[in-house]
């Protein structure tokens, strides 16, 4: 039984590999765009709140509550407003990425030793200069870890977005469900799921490299 399915999966992939590559690239594009937007917004929020106790507590609490909301519920709520397709997908992915990125930006900035900030100020650096040349570079490894966590989260959630006609490999997973009982149902769902797993593992590996190469030389272990 299993052998039969595997042979068929070979056949299936041989006939549809262009389609699979296309969906994988769509999936990656949706995740990359969302992460870029979420990083810009999240780091900005982190910069605004990290040294103010009340805004910090409020934004971290709000983000912590927001991330518990089931993704299908959020996607469904967005669809009457944003329609179907890319728009609700990107908004939902940005929404779920914010918690890890804001939290890690706050943690990263708070971990910068205060004597380093003071000596930078003592050297006559402007606050903007201190931020760009001292605080952000030192906090960067922690921020990258936050983006990496967000990437793992969004790659999985993007699969559900296919239900609101979103892009990516979820299309194959849901096609497997809708063709339940036909010969290719398992091939569709299996191809979609395995490609998501591979993509998630590859992106995670990519982040290890990004973290290594974007970390200031003095901080590398």
């Amino acid at each position: 039984m299993t052998g039969l399915h595997l042979v068929r999966l070979d056949d299936f992939l041989a006939r549809r590999w262009e389609d699979v590559v296309d969906l994988t690239l769509q999936h990656l594009a949706a995740v990359a765009v969302s992460l870029a937007l979420a990083t810009a917004i999240g780091v900005l929020i982190g910069l605004l709140v990290w040294d103010r106790p009340v805004p910090r507590a409020v934004s971290l609490t709000a983000a912590g509550i927001a991330i518990t909301i089931p993704s299908l519920a959020l996607l469904a709520l967005l669809s009457p407003v944003l329609g179907l397709g890319w728009a609700p997908t990107i908004v939902a992915l940005v929404f779920y990425s914010l918690l890890p990125i804001v939290r890690n930006t706050v943690v990263g900035l708070r971990e910068v030793p205060s004597h380093l900030v003071e000596s930078a100020q003592g050297m006559g650096m402007t606050p903007a200069r201190v931020l760009l040349s001292v605080q952000l570079p030192l906090a960067w490894p922690v921020i990258v870890t936050g983006i990496r966590v967000a990437a793992q989260l969004t790659i999985g959630i993007a699969a559900i977005a296919a239900y609101v006609a979103g892009p990516g490999l979820g299309v194959y997973i849901f096609r497997g469900l809708s063709s339940l009982g036909s010969v290719n149902a398992l091939n569709f769902a299996l191809t979609g799921t395995l490609c998501v797993v591979l993509l998630a593992l590859l992106v995670d590996g990519l982040f290890v490299l990004i973290a290594r190469h974007s970390t200031p030389r003095g901080l590398r272990v």
Partner: peptide, 22 residues
């Protein structure tokens, strides 16, 4: 654990429904 984390939940649910039952 890492592979499990990379697996989409919707894929697991739908695959099991296909190979077993709904």
């Amino acid at each position: 654990g890492n592979i499990g984390q990379a697996t989409p939940a919707v894929g697991v649910v739908i695959l099991l429904a296909i190979v077993w039952r709904t």
